[in-house]
Design a binder for these strands. Structure first.
Lengths: 215, 215
DNA sequence: CAGGCAATACCCGAAAAGGTGTATATTTTG
DNA sequence: CAAAATATACACCTTTTCGGGTATTGCCTG
């Protein structure tokens, strides 16, 4: 029986090494390449000719999602398993949209990693329920994404919009010709409605729930 | 000669009214509908049967960009002119990608608005040079967007990533198991490299220059 | 091996943001 | 019409962030 040929892309050398050892100890898997970035991705893959690529989602230079795009473009038969440190639904979803077959958390344990590699090679799609639901929703209706309604007033949306563009309270006050304290009053309401408690959380939520759509 | 049939979607009643008056005073234009949101978009357009739709980019419920998508889907022959308060390249670009024909700033003056309506009806595409350049770039090379390199180190990217997810310095310190002051040290470097000076600016830039891609 | 850079960590003072409370006029809505 | 929501504004106080420094460790490169 032929071994599953596996290649790894991850900027963390330690993690690459430990996966190497892990795969070396498993007799139905074979590590054919281990790379710290996607700069030579095309050559790397041509040379190592893997069945499965294990790809870190966060990498300097070309990131993992862009890596997925490239692999899909040049090697459409290769299955890609994403690895992430955090369970970041949106990024994982993006990776899947780009053509990854599944994903696994970096702290999931070695047995699970090996299982996931075998699973993607067999055409499976290891992923968490929350991501699976997103994928399902996308398939069911061509809609962009969950359109949660936060009941923001027009003014609140305006303030949030400026926030998302990186403005400070003071700048927002100037831009809207209202007092600093009024901006704060709006912010309080916005935080309440979005269930957050800081500018950055609000910005992150505004983007991920695409309150303004299309970033 | 037939008048150009125009419909307006804007949540600002005052602005709707002033545009109504404006169009009423112009003899080659005819206002056939004026709506505060896109909830009944399909019926509204079927009933009013416009040649040109003037659409606010920011609206509660279904936003202007989603509105564009819907119009393109059901009424592919209608030309859409976007209206925005701010010259937000990214959103405008998104609207154009979604199928809008052009855009105009809300404070551009009535004469320009009328010109723009006529222009889109005649197949033109009124837009600012900076947006035009983006569109051109997109056409010239299938690349996602400007891929500026900010020379962030792996650690800095990691910190910025957590920032974008809405974390505070303290949370980042905990998550990365480093001291609060080290997070600050990284932040200083990040701000320097991105040429910004606040968390929200950094988040905004990280997203708009898609340092992490795919939001 | 010397110099540069990344990562770590600490200090200080100033500025910004956040939490809570109060208040008033207007608009919307049941 | 009365109640609720919105937009405006101020006060007081705490926490967080920002902009300067300074310093050590380790790694990579010329």
């Amino acid at each position: 029986m032929n071994k599953i040929r596996v290649a790894i892309f991850d900027d963390n050398a330690l993690l690459r090494d430990s996966i190497s050892l892990l795969i070396g100890d498993t007799d139905n898997l074979e590590l054919v390449g281990s790379f710290p970035n996607c700069k030579q991705l095309k050559d790397n893959i041509t040379d190592s000719n893997p069945h499965v690529v294990v790809m870190d989602i966060d990498m300097p230079g070309i990131n993992g999602i862009e890596g997925v795009v490239l692999i899909r473009k040049f090697f459409p038969d290769i299955h890609i398993l994403m690895q992430t440190v955090f369970d970041d639904d949106d990024r994982i979803f993006a990776a899947l949209k780009a053509g990854a077959s599944g994903y696994i958390l970096k702290n999931a344990g070695s047995a699970k990693l090996l299982d996931a590699i075998v699973e993607v090679h067999n055409g499976g799609a290891p992923m968490s329920p929350s991501v699976a639901k997103k994928v399902l929703n996308q398939f069911q209706s061509g809609k962009p994404d969950s359109e949660e309604d936060f009941n923001l007033s027009a003014r609140e949306r305006e303030v949030l919009g400026l926030l998302v563009k990186g403005k400070s309270y003071k700048m927002i006050a100037d831009e809207l010709c209202i007092s600093y304290d009024t901006v704060r009053a709006h912010m309080k309401k916005i935080y309440e409605k979005l269930h957050v408690s800081s500018m950055t959380e609000a910005v992150a939520k505004a983007i991920n729930k695409n309150i303004f759509g299309f970033f």
